[in-house]
Design a protein around this nucleic acid. Structure first.
Length: 416
RNA sequence: GGGCAGCUGGCCGAGUGGUCGAAGGCGCACGCCUGGAACGCGUGUGAGUGUUAAAGCUCCGAGAGUUCGAAUCUCUCGCUGUCCGCCA
């Protein structure tokens, strides 16, 4: 959540940065106004309440001393009505401020370039040469038509569109990748975690999926739980409402989960293949750091994801997201895009973000710095999206006859 | 799914209508003591909001109610434990 004190203190500075993310100035002015209104409402209420408390206290004294309480009771009764009114006014003001404040995205870091959409993201670095083929490389679903790794029809039959089934070597490759990625990240100092894949609304508010993006989530109505869209949600919220001892920071975690997304609004995009599924698998990194540690840990996380791609010998590039492509909670983000010969372009396979204190403020994740409680920074990043890694392996390791080689580092994981 | 018990500060635990944000203990921090340590002694030690600082306000699982006044009484919900049933 936005630091409302900062907005109040430096309205021009904050709004200038948020305008880059297309947050309307009217909304920010409204926010500022509502914040001031709440402050006034609080002052009025607290004054009346203090009055009430004092009189109630007197009540006890009077009774003990046997004094007449008739007059006092009349005053207290009258004030009670006032207190109720002011309390309600404060509640309304608070609610109206909250609903607004929770829908404002994070302030983009100064390193984030301006831009409309993903076309204006800025390439940082290319890693590994793009392979050349003596034939026209196929897309992964065309390869699957030959080697049968993916069964699209039966996935749709038992669920609906955008669900699929991995078969035989395809399924084993997925399992090998998960284990490889977990081991790799673990060797880089990330603690392996296995977490719930259903979470409550509080957790989703903490990381910023709610209240704005409810349409993208699968919900289990009966129990008021949601299927997670990413392991970032359970992993980050592990520490919500906690004050972490300074010595434990930075906390670096890796977790493997399924992810569930409705993909509302992406109708017609990536309908072929398993690039965009309602259920997919992902190995996720989440870190919780002191503010002065987050940049270093961020670079760490980018290296982890990139080095996994390199270990798999998959050409890729690092891209700095522009303001138009930056997510709701992120202060800055680097995407990793893997080369897909079948599509003849780079496609996103990992996204690593520093949310700074945006999520910590929502989820109340703090640490004790000397005597003071300070918000931590939280970071998250895929390392990697498993389905898209399978796609990349299929397309980069394909032979003319539709066979696909298994990357060297995965062979031990497949008993080869 | 049904029965019973519970939910208080980092932890344990007292408090059953006012002077309670809350005794006592443990833990922790600092100081004294010591060659150094243990023991002992002393002081301090929840969060949020607010303020130059304070005062004030809010929080004893959550919400609602009774009352001038609720940690304390009533109701609803949640969670934890436990017994029974069911089950990977």
């Amino acid at each position: 959540m936005l630091d409302l004190k900062l907005l109040q203190k430096d309205f021009d500075g904050v709004s200038k940065e948020l305008l880059r993310k297309k947050v309307s100035i009217e909304l920010l002015e409204d926010l500022k106004k509502k914040n001031e209104e709440l402050k006034q409402a609080k002052i009025s209420f607290e004054e009346a309440q203090a009055n009430q408390n004092a009189m109630s206290k007197l009540f006890g004294t009077y009774k003990r001393e046997g004094k007449d309480i008739g007059e006092l009771k009349a005053k207290v009764d009258a004030n009670k009505i006032l207190v109720e009114e002011l309390k309600e006014a404060q509640r309304v003001a608070q609610e109206s401020l909250n609903s607004l404040a929770m829908s404002v995205p994070n302030i983009p870091d100064e390193s984030v370039p301006d831009g409309e959409d993903e076309d204006e993201n800025v390439e940082i670095e290319k890693i590994l040469e793009i392979p050349t083929f003596s034939f026209t490389p196929k897309e992964h679903h065309e390869i699957s038509d030959i080697n049968g790794w993916i069964d699209f029809e039966r996935g749709v039959k038992i669920a609906k569109s955008r669900f699929s089934v991995l078969k035989d070597t395809g399924a084993r490759l997925e399992r090998a990748l998960i284990n490889f990625m977990l081991d790799f990240n673990r060797s880089r100092g990330f603690m392996e975690m296995s977490v719930p894949q259903l979470v409550n609304p509080d957790a989703l508010r903490g990381t910023g999926q709610l209240p704005k993006f409810e349409d993208d989530l699968y919900k289990v109505e009966d129990d008021n739980l949601y299927l997670i869209p990413t392991a970032e949600v359970p992993l980050t919220n592990l520490f919500s409402d906690e004050i972490i001892p300074e010595s434990q920071l930075p906390i670096k975690m890796v977790g493997y989960t399924s992810c569930f997304r409705k993909e509302a609004g992406s109708a017609g995009r990536d309908t072929k293949g398993i690039i965009r599924q309602h259920q997919f698998h992902k190995v996720e990194l989440v870190s919780i750091t002191k503010p002065d540690q987050s940049e270093e840990v961020f670079n760490d996380m980018v290296s982890c994801a990139s080095d996994i791609l390199s270990a798999l010998k998959l050409p890729h590039r690092k891209v700095r997201l522009c303001t138009g492509d930056l997510g709701f909670s992120a202060s800055y983000t680097v995407d990793l895009e893997v080369w897909l010969p079948g599509q003849n372009k780079y496609r996103e396979i990992s996204s690593i973000s520093n949310t700074k204190e945006f999520q910590s403020r929502r989820a109340k994740i703090r640490f004790k710095d000397q005597k003071k409680n300070v918000f931590t920074h939280t970071l998250n990043g895929s390392s990697l999206a498993v389905g898209r890694t399978i796609v990349a392996i299929m397309e980069n390791y394909q032979k003319e006859d539709g066979n696909v080689e298994i990357p060297e580092v995965l062979k031990p994981y497949m008993g080869l």
